[in-house]
């Protein structure tokens, strides 16, 4: 494939250092991935601050969008965590906005999708996992471990159920991170494959060029799908975080 001039579909995920940096023996270069993290926060921050600058009683389009985003996350926290979740709302909101803008910016051609990096999604998921576990231990103490014993189960089954519950609890960060990572990886790889196919066929010249229309049309459809996936996965990551937080605060 490479010999025909087509780029590898996974080349887009390569990390390229923009500013070389090292600290304590670690390479902490500012990379294309870091740049798009920064852009996600900067674009969302500028958008939200600009939209709310007037703080009008009757919101305009921009302010309406900003408020809608706020209300969306606020409703999510309210309905999934309850009033105790209020303290964690800024974190949940930042998480949602960061992932949403990261995913969406990643769909712009030649940009970078940092959520397609397993280490990024895993670190966020691990942070959430450790965070909610610490919150649960602080709030409930040793009573927290009753979380692994399902209520009303027959006594014989309890040892098995505890094993299952413990496994499912520790799988949480893995499933949470892999879900987002795999969706971004698969989506962007697929986009690249179809785009590469269209370019390759059009390179054939003559009447064969018409054949490139098919992968091109598929690419348009897939792009629409990826916009949906980008928003949906940001939502899924955020709502699962809310649910884990709810478990930590209220156990079962």
């Amino acid at each position: 494939m490479a010999s025909q001039g087509m780029h590898s579909p996974v080349e887009q995920f390569e990390i390229k250092p923009l500013i070389e940096l090292t600290a304590g023996g670690y390479d902490i270069s500012f990379t294309n991935s870091s740049l798009f993290m920064l852009l996600a926060i900067a674009v969302s921050g500028v958008f939200l601050v600009t939209a709310m600058r007037q703080g009008e009683l009757v919101p305009g389009r921009m302010q309406g969008a900003a408020e809608m985003m706020y209300e969306f996350v606020a409703d999510m926290v309210r309905s999934n965590v309850g009033s105790e979740g209020r303290a964690y709302f800024p974190f949940i909101f930042t998480l949602f906005v960061f992932l949403l803008f990261g995913n969406m910016l990643g769909l712009i051609p030649y940009s970078y999708t940092f959520t397609s990096q397993i280490i990024v999604t895993f670190f966020m998921a691990a942070f959430v996992f450790v965070g909610v576990t610490v919150i649960a231990l602080f709030k409930h103490g040793l009573h927290f471990f009753s979380f692994f014993v399902p209520a009303g189960a027959p006594k014989v089954l309890i040892p098995f159920l505890i094993v299952i519950e413990v496994i499912s609890y520790f799988v949480r960060p893995v499933s949470l991170s892999v879900r987002l990572f795999a969706n971004m990886l698969a989506g962007h790889t697929m986009l690249k494959v179809f785009a590469g196919l269209a370019v390759m066929i059009s390179g054939a010249g003559g009447i064969a060029m018409a054949g490139s229309l098919l992968p091109f049309l598929a690419l348009i459809g897939l792009t629409g799908l990826e916009v949906l996936v980008a928003a949906l996965q940001a939502y899924v990551f955020t709502i699962l975080t809310c649910m884990y937080l709810n478990d930590a605060l209220h156990l079962h």
Binding site: M37, I41, T94, F98, I119, V120, F123
Partner: peptide, 17 residues
């Protein structure tokens, strides 16, 4: 590439938070 990504994720997400 992981240390760099974790480092910048923590810094940028922290600032964003």
């Amino acid at each position: 590439t992981w240390p760099s990504q974790i480092f910048w994720l923590v810094v940028i997400f922290g600032v964003g938070y």
